[in-house]
Amino acid sequence: MGCRKSTQNGSYPERRSSKETSRVGRKLKYAAAAIVAVTAGIYLNNSSLLAPHSGGKPVLLAHRGIAQRFDERNLRNDTCTAARMLPPSHDYLENTIRSMRASFDRGADIVEFDVHPTTDGEFAVFHDWTVDCRTDGQGVTREQAMARLKMLDIGYGYTADGGKTFPFRGKGIGLMPSLDEVLKTFPDRRFLINIKSRDPAEGEKLSAVLNQLPAERRKLIMVYGGDQPIEAVRRLSPETRTISRAAIKSCLVRYLGYGWTGIVPGACRNAIVLVPINYAPWLWGWPDRFLDRMAAANSAVFVLGPYQGGEFSTGVDDADTFRRLPENYSGGIWTNEIEAIARLTGR
């Protein structure tokens, strides 16, 4: 009779192979089930569809208030942007009380402005490191007294035709405000203050100013700028929301890495979270789940224009960029065109 030949221990190779195949099959099924379960868990933990929608209109941040726009191509840190002004459509000058008031009137929730310490213990609200480009003065801004800066014509250097005409010359005398003047003029308004240096002492000086304000007033102020002064602000005024360039990158990179767990990185806590619009869809839980997580971490989210390498992006400044936001988006929007974007949000 023909029969299968057994091995030395009496087992049959065909039967052992069948059992092993069955075990492997069960392991694969368990692994597949585990993968499906983990994937489903990640989806449920990060799906914006399952997150509550806060509703309401977006929070609009007017960068520099209503300002004169300029050619933004090939900019460097020392580029005189006033000499590259585009043909003006209004007569507002950035970082002025008049510009800030108009920004709030036209729908801004927050106005951003720049500060420099002065030799007489104040902070001047002015963008440039030196006064040479924009004014009729000379020298480093922080090496001058506020009283002297008040005498300058901040509209002196603006030109849209290569220096043939200067439409704001003589119209900006005395319009450079101090930080104290801004805070007293708008006691209940929200601001984002930009520290222009990398000097930690500047962060210490600004913290001293902020810490003298009532607690409710301090809640309306955020600060961003160089890593060193921002670290000083975080240390001395820990309740103030802040961000620096290094913190922005750390926040976004780490969130992309493990934000699926629901854990918010330390750099994203009590912070201003700036999100380029082309990166936003890659953030775990974008938009509502992400916004909820940041709000729980006492952070404010603002979408910027697209980041394309090099310098950080500009703002959401036109209808095409605005339409890239999710429908019914209720987070923050950073814009250089507050009038246009306010209209698009129905204000």
Rank of each mutant, 00 (worst) to 15 (best):
R134A: 07
R134H: 06
T135P: 06
T135Y: 03
D136G: 02
D136N: 04
D136T: 03
G137D: 07
V140W: 15
V140K: 15
V140I: 11
V140E: 14
R142S: 13
E143T: 07
Q144C: 14
Q144Y: 08
A145E: 14
A145F: 01
M146N: 11
M146S: 10
M151L: 09
L152I: 14
L152C: 12
L152E: 13
D153G: 09
D153F: 05
I154Q: 15
Y156P: 13
Y156T: 09
Y156N: 13
G157P: 12
T159K: 02
T159A: 06
T159C: 00
A160E: 11
A160W: 04
D161F: 00
D161Y: 01
D161N: 11
G162Y: 01
G162M: 04
G162S: 00
G163Q: 09
G163R: 04
F166C: 03
F166Y: 15
F166R: 12
F166T: 09
P167E: 00
P167N: 09
F168M: 05
F168W: 02
G170K: 04
K171E: 06
K171F: 01
K171N: 10
G174V: 07
G174K: 07
L175D: 14
M176S: 00
M176H: 14
M176K: 07
M176I: 15
P177R: 04
L179A: 09
D180L: 10
E181T: 14
V182F: 06
L183N: 01
L183P: 04
K184T: 11
K184V: 04
T185W: 05
F186I: 11
F186W: 14
P187C: 10
D188P: 11
F191S: 14
F191P: 06
F191T: 03
L192V: 14
I193K: 04
N194M: 14
N194V: 01
I195H: 03
I195G: 01
I195K: 03
K196P: 06
K196I: 02
K196W: 03
S197F: 10
R198E: 13
R198N: 15
R198I: 12
R198H: 15
D199N: 15
D199K: 06
D199V: 10
P200F: 04
P200C: 09
A201W: 11
E202K: 09
G203L: 04
K205R: 15
K205Q: 14
S207C: 06
A208I: 00
V209Q: 10
V209T: 13
V209C: 02
V209I: 05
N211A: 05
N211D: 10
Q212W: 11
L213N: 11
L213I: 02
L213W: 06
A215E: 14
E216V: 00
R217W: 00
R218I: 00
L220W: 03
L220I: 02
L220V: 00
L220R: 12
I221R: 03
I221Q: 07
V223F: 14
Y224A: 12
G225L: 01
G226K: 01
G226S: 12
G226N: 03
D227G: 12
D227I: 12
D227K: 09
D227L: 12
Q228A: 15
P229F: 08
P229S: 12
P229N: 08
I230A: 05
I230E: 04
I230Y: 05
E231G: 15
E231N: 11
